[in-house]
Design a protein around this nucleic acid. Structure first.
Lengths: 337, 337
DNA sequence: CTGTTAGCGCATTCAA
DNA sequence: TTGAATGCGCTAACAG
């Protein structure tokens, strides 16, 4: 039942003109007479002609498609980022091919392969937490596929990236707690792959220094983001002789897990123990004991900036210009709930 | 800087054989001698040859791409569904093009156009809440692009679809409340477009009937899912002379909004007022007063089934067979928290 | 202003 | 077992 779709050739035949004339007419090429142009357009719409994009992709060596690789879509951070990405893509008449790494390196590699096969014009990536080598992205250079990383950015030089600088907000977060009278502030960090620059920790330390509070290293624990690991990390803090009275937590999900766990142990949130976190996700609005404050990381804006940068790279590729890699850094913002 | 990628033509030239031989060798065509085949493969890997998929897409009239159109990615229901969709797609070496309608008909139409332009081999759709006409899907038949709807399914005959039958669980949900002693049970329904079959309401009525409780129509209110509308609906219930002691709510998001609102009015949840809801989203685990129970709608499984059905249609299209439309209905399940 | 022609990379039919 | 030739639908260089 394959329906035969009309082609420019058919239009040409019906009108007794050449295919190139038809092609040009359809593209409003200046050198086409108004009369023929009208005739062509009329015939095209009569036949319900639509250009075969696969032919165009093939010929133009462009697919008007960008790939998006991210850990998962469940986290609101990423689904917000997508909105920004989608917005800019649509403006540019591009469409988005999506792949979730589920935080597994192997999947990430496979997705990169698939995207390459599909000849995406560019790639947007937020790396998996288990990605510590980047050959699979490196090789894309050979195929002239530009890559822009966002939020979860590899710590290697010469890449294009957009991320949020968390240093200043981390300082503010700790000072916010200090101002509330806290002197022993725990810090629960995430997996080391996502922490290489560790602006959170640097901010944490800096705030302590600026306020002449020595940092007790035993107050610094880490989680791989799984529930069990988070609970272990929390246990470690609670087993200290001198427990923290507040904890700065890697992100809201971990904070919510921790708060729930703490409450199961009858710890009074905001009384015995306060929390400040990162991401500022809407989900925290629904809970009774959200973190007192959370650092907004502007997922939508990161998505927008990353996509804009990617299109700049795509355009420059077309213009055969070479530009140095850029890392755009947004400011984060401490939001007090 | 356009890098020139190797083609079969180059392989042929280097080996002094014809392109067709190369093509066949690469595809393990039986009629190719082992020696030439090996030579070709060796040369191919030396040159880092990779077939140009855009050429193949063009020639084969297939893109190995399916489109996915859904209201948004923020709702966990949809992000779970995607996991199932992705899973089956990967098995079939397909990739997913994504578009969010944001519950707007116009956007949905535009996405359909774009997907059509990109010549997706098939389309998976969960319609926007404002979609009440379906021409934009109808026309896809002309292009032989099969469509499978899931979860939010248009109420028209002859479409391929996967959804969850909520009738039985709705009966169970109400009987669960009745068993707890409730006699006045409110029902807060969603927008009418998503309710055409209204299995929820039918179940609600049936359970009342089976238990000889007359249905008080004033206990049935509706929301368009926005916070304001939900709060108005709740107000309406609370202004009744005889207020409900329990409410069955369209979905978890609406339930959480309602519960929060009720608590602001010092209503004691699970004491003055109980809730049962739909979707069984993980988000409810984080809140202090989740609905007592929620109807699981199996998003992952819906995604899987819908995608499997879609591939069946794609295969049948290739085999030029014609099959009648199918609506696969899954059973839902009342989960008591 | 319009037509002729070539070619993108590949699969495939027909011939040898 | 292999090669030559064709065409998918479109754009664009070249020619008139």
């Amino acid at each position: 039942m394959e329906k035969k779709l009309p082609t420019i050739k058919e239009i040409a035949k019906k009108l007794n003109i050449s295919v190139s004339t038809v092609s040009r007419a359809l593209h409003d090429h200046p050198s086409i007479g108004l009369r023929t142009k009208m005739a062509v357009k009329k015939m095209a719409s009569e036949l319900n002609y639509e250009p075969n994009q696969t032919a165009i992709f093939f010929k133009q060596r462009k697919t008007f498609t960008i790939g998006l690789i991210l850990p998962n879509l469940r986290e609101e951070f990423f689904s917000s980022a997508i909105n920004g990405i989608e917005h800019i893509s649509q403006q540019n008449n591009y469409i988005v091919l999506i792949g979730q790494s589920h935080d597994e390196l192997e999947r990430e590699k496979k997705i990169v392969e698939t995207m390459k096969k599909h000849r995406v014009d560019g790639l947007l990536v937020s790396i998996s937490k288990n990605t510590m080598q980047f050959d699979h992205f490196e090789q894309l250079k050979k195929y002239d596929i530009p890559v822009v990383f966002f939020d979860r950015v590899p710590n290697v030089p010469g890449i294009n990236a957009v991320s949020c600088n968390l240093y200043q907000s981390s300082v503010e977060a700790v000072e916010f707690l200090i101002a509330k009278g806290h002197q022993r502030i725990g810090y629960m960090q995430g997996p080391s792959t996502l922490n290489i620059k560790n602006e959170r920790l640097e901010g944490y330390r800096a705030a302590h220094k600026q306020n002449n509070i020595p940092v007790d290293e035993s107050l610094i624990v880490s989680t791989d983001l799984s529930l069990e690991s988070t609970q272990q990390a929390f246990d470690r803090l609670m087993q200290l002789r001198k427990k923290p009275t507040a904890i700065l937590v890697f992100n809201d999900y971990v904070a919510l897990d921790t708060i729930r766990y703490a409450r199961q142990q009858k710890i009074k949130i905001n009384k015995d123990l306060c929390f400040v976190s990162y991401a500022n996700l809407p989900i925290t609005q629904y809970v009774d004991y959200p973190p007192l404050a959370s650092v907004e990381q502007f997922p939508y804006e990161q998505g927008v900036k990353a996509t804009e940068l990617l299109f700049k790279l795509i355009d420059q590729k077309a213009a055969e210009k070479e530009i140095p890699a850029r890392h755009i850094v947004l400011k984060s913002d401490l939001i007090i709930h």
